[in-house]
């Protein structure tokens, strides 16, 4: 066997790279001003980290509910429209809504398996996102589904009964509740 047959194509061999950049102290500068336009761009790294103070405001009871093992929606006392994800005011008639506890068991309205994600969530891939539906609730709820094989997604999962489960140590994020198969 010759070496070529044993070696993968040269362009497929890569040293692992990061986007760390480097510290630049000096940069070559042309002697003649007319050559200056041929310079490569100087690219520097600017860190961008912030602690942002986010208030859940009128939706705070939802997160307090999760911390206490309760999944809360809202209901319009006037037109009876019912929200699976809370809205403090009714989108249908504008009235202030009231809190109520959603049923423990719902169904998968739709789902996906994320193999990639925003940087913050990459380490959690693959994960399943579901929109949950309940009888007599007009709107849906976005959540994670666990306990289902992520390698075998199929349309058969739509309509499947799923059950809410809560984190013991609340992080005060919507992922304090997640869903598991109910049957």
């Amino acid at each position: 066997m010759n070496i070529q047959a044993m070696t993968p194509a040269a362009e497929k061999i890569r040293l692992a790279e990061t986007d760390d950049g480097t510290i630049l102290f000096k940069v070559p500068f042309p002697k003649e001003m007319k050559d200056i336009q041929h310079m490569s761009p100087i690219i520097i790294k600017q860190p961008y980290h912030i602690d942002y103070i986010h208030s859940y405001g009128q939706d705070s009871p939802f997160f307090a509910g999760l911390a206490n093992g309760k999944l809360l929606g809202t209901k319009c006392p006037k037109c009876k429209y019912t929200y699976g994800t809370p809205k403090a005011h009714c989108m249908e008639c504008g009235s202030p809504t009231e809190w109520f506890e959603l049923p423990e068991v719902g169904r998968i309205h739709t789902f996906t398996v994320c193999h990639r994600g925003g940087e913050e969530f990459l380490k959690e891939t693959p994960f399943i996102l579901v929109l949950v539906e309940w009888d007599k609730v007009d709107t849906l709820f976005l959540s994670r589904l666990v306990g289902v094989d992520t390698s075998k997604p199929s349309l058969k999962m739509v309509g499947m009964k799923i059950k809410a489960q809560f984190k013991r140590n609340a992080k005060f994020r919507p992922t304090d509740v997640y869903f598991v198969p109910a049957e």
Partner: peptide, 30 residues
């Protein structure tokens, strides 16, 4: 992708796994 996902409700949607391709995937599954 994280920046783009900030164009979803940051109280209820983004923290669940903010990813636009995931959102569109759920729509097409339906």
């Amino acid at each position: 992708n994280e920046f783009i996902a900030l164009a979803s409700d940051v109280s209820f949607d983004y923290p669940v796994g903010g990813f636009y391709s995931g959102y569109y995937a759920m729509m097409v599954v339906r």
